[in-house]
């Protein structure tokens, strides 16, 4: 192919950015510029940013909602004691929500890749079918995983149902996997070597400086030090509390019990303390609570 026909490159906002914090700042700047509200992360352990009330609850009403936020996520099963350069029990998602979904949502997402320094004339970006489902939240959506030279760096989803209810209007969700994106941008094969930013004495701080010790200890905790018996009873308590709180009209506290119950279930799972049939029952128990919260939220006068 003749090179001359290639389009002139779009100017890169930040072509040499390769620090984690800068990537987050760029995304904040980009998406607030697209009319999204920047909001804080939620302060409970959760498996994915979908559990954030800004996602789960806001997908359930009919009001417009544009928001962007960083959310630390935990998947106890994925812990590798800080020894696997690609996997950890904690990772960071950057979440963008837009409802109703703008007609050019995909174009905006592509422009956000430009904004963090991805040269789309060099990098192969593809949208590959990936339908999302969260059995615990009674939720599903249709969409894509986004490949950058074959690496999945983001999920792009149109929510169809949340808590068992149809999403109307539909909410669009983009979830960036920040570690992978930055590994791509910096050409690194080890997430612990990623540059986070510069701190005291202008010293370069790496991802591993911040999180490797935590990762090793949390892996030991998740796999070895938790007490499955007390986790199981904690799950039961959370379940009872959630129902009781809903009965008192305390919707947000009830939803917090659901978020926690989901994490406790993940901790149990990491101990292989859940058999196949029990597993299904736990998921159904959480889903029942999530659906009850969703129903209460929708009935609430606004």
């Amino acid at each position: 192919m003749e090179r001359g026909i290639l389009c002139t490159p779009v100017p890169q906002v930040n072509a040499v950015m390769a620090a984690f914090q800068d990537m987050v700042f760029s995304l904040n700047q980009f998406w607030t510029g697209q009319g999204c509200l920047w909001i804080p992360s939620y302060d409970l352990p959760m498996g994915a940013a979908t559990f954030h009330p800004a996602t789960f609850l806001r997908a359930l009403d009919d009001q417009p909602w544009n928001a962007a936020f960083l959310q630390p996520c935990r998947r106890p099963q994925d812990g590798r004691y800080g020894e696997n350069p690609n996997r950890g029990q904690q990772y960071f998602q950057y979440q963008v929500l837009m409802k109703p979904v703008p007609e050019n949502f995909q174009d905006r997402f592509l422009a956000s890749l430009d904004a963090i320094g991805i040269d789309r004339h060099a990098a192969d970006v593809r949208f590959v079918e990936d339908n999302w489902e969260s059995p615990t939240l009674g939720a599903w959506g249709l969409g894509w995983e986004v490949w950058l030279d074959g690496m999945e760096v983001a999920q792009f989803t149109f929510f169809q149902q949340m808590g068992g209810f149809d999403c109307e209007p539909v909410m669009g969700e983009i979830t960036y996997g920040l570690e992978r994106l930055l590994m791509y941008l910096s050409g690194s094969g080890d997430m612990y070597e990623l540059v986070w930013g510069r701190g005291a004495a202008n010293r370069e701080i790496r991802y591993g400086d911040l999180f490797r010790a935590n990762e090793a200890e949390m892996s030991r905790f998740n796999f070895e030090a938790t007490d499955p018996g007390s986790l199981a009873s904690r799950f039961a308590t959370l379940e009872t509390q959630a129902t009781a709180l809903l009965g008192q009209g305390l919707l947000h506290p009830a939803y917090e019990q659901v978020i926690e119950a989901s994490h406790v279930f993940n901790l149990l799972d990491a101990r292989h303390a859940v058999s196949v049939s029990e597993r299904q029952r736990y998921i159904l128990r959480i889903r029942k609570l999530a659906q009850a919260v969703a129903a209460a939220y929708r009935e609430r006068p606004r």
Binding site: L6, H121, R126
Partner: peptide, 24 residues
């Protein structure tokens, strides 16, 4: 051999990217 949707300005980078996914 992978098939991509782009005549990349930097094929080596695409190659390196694919290798980096396949390795882990």
């Amino acid at each position: 051999v992978g098939v991509v949707n782009l005549a990349s300005t930097d094929v080596n980078r695409v190659r390196a990217g694919m290798e980096r996914v396949i390795l882990p």
